[in-house]
Design a protein around this nucleic acid. Sequence first.
RNA 1: GGCUCUAUCGUCUAUCGGCUAGGACACAUCCUUCUCAAGGAUGGAAGGCGGGUUCGACUCCCGCUAGAGUCACCA
Length: 464
Amino acid sequence: MKIVTRFPPSPTGPLHIGSARTALFNYLFAQNGGGKMILRFEDTDKTRSKKEFEEDIFEGLNWLGMNCSEVFHQSERILVYRKYLEKLLAEEKAYYSDESKVTEFKSENDDSEDPSETLIDAPLRVIRLKNLKKVIIFNDIVRGEISIDTTELGDFIIARSIEEPLYHFAVVVDDFEMEATHIIRGEDGIYNTPRQILIQEAIGAPRPSYCHIPFVLGEDKSKLSKRHGAVSVNEYKMMGILPDAFLNYLALLGWNPGTTKEIFTREELIKEFSLSKIQKSGAVFSIEKLRWINREHLKKMSLADFKKLTLNYIPKEITSLPEWSEDRLTRLLPDLKERIYVLKEISDLGNGGDLSYIFDKPQYKTELLLPKKNKSNKNILSTHLEKVINLIEKIDASKTINKDTVKEAIWDYANEKGRGDVLWPMRVALSGKEKSPDPFTLSEILGKEATLSRLQNAISLLKG
RNA sequence: GGCUCUAUCGUCUAUCGGCUAGGACACAUCCUUCUCAAGGAUGGAAGGCGGGUUCGACUCCCGCUAGAGUCACCA
């Protein structure tokens, strides 16, 4: 049996973390079993469905690399549902029901994009399913056997009219026609399952396997929603989270491989994923851990790939700086890659941050050149810096200026005179900062010329 | 409220009756170090409560408690 899973978002809001995680589990399971996942937009609610959300969801899935070759829209399948509706009506498994009162519904859902008060303009005739009022027992891959009495459901409504099927009906027909073998969805789907099984039995569809996965929760342990902050996938993309890192983290929310392994490539995830390892209880979303995982992925990335990404995040304030050059950026990359968790930090380093001094003469007060401990006088410090210049100039022209050669040239002198007295002013001269990478790394990034001129500047300041 | 589900460090989790309860994130301290970051080491930190079953329960059963979800002519 070929595995077919489905991801059926309703385009009533942007792709959020919870849905992305549900999609991921469907994707991983299908890929793992050599099957496929289909994407189905459940847009039968014309008032709430928006094209822009559909695009957001589609792009989000693309970004995460979960492209689906088969994409359906329920709004385009009205005739299909109609066919099944007519069949049910003919077999008297469903019937038209005249409704006397118009029901009014007030949305209380925080997540809803709607204005919160909606009045449904209700037609007087609807289609109801004849409910045999039995106890439905189904097996859930995560939770085992679940039994729910459908008596109080009554003869529930399956369509507003012959051409306006409701969610449950459309879902069951689609899952049947698209031959879905596994329904992997959020645990709130548990309550939907009995009535969907009732519809299945009425139309003569086989029962797929059910797998209800726990929620992704907010800090307060309630289902993750807008009030918890950044919940849409796009926000994480903007932040500079890597798609594979995001997938990696999402997979670990509610699933684990049974080993202590935490960093996975997409391929490893697919290979090791199994539904039986899914957790029963909800998992709180932690941005901290996501950042850490992103960092681990960043570490494993090649410098060339990192450079491509970096270029997208370098702000204008930096590229318009007098000493800006791509070469210098390239030399900065190894250190930068070690320091950041998310790509957005690169932009944040722009204004007066740790990137601006790389591409412009540092501005600082002379006092900063004085080491905190063992304050030596300015004359001694400027002598040290002069010597440093001298030593760097003497580096054999056949050798390039890099952190190793500079360190080699200066180390003995610094050791002899006190590393703090030599290295601190040297580092401040190059960075203008109290905190920065070490002076050897800085001189490699800046290059010989800029290094020497910054040292010279510092000497003038000390003598001034 | 009815119904359904869940319950191990602050968080993500391991344990499928033998536990000195393991790992990761975060946190703290120390080391390394001119500063920062990184790295290394160490540490604090958990089985909701009460009954059973058992030689032995975090693990199995029951009750309670707590939390979540769900009860539409939304999906």
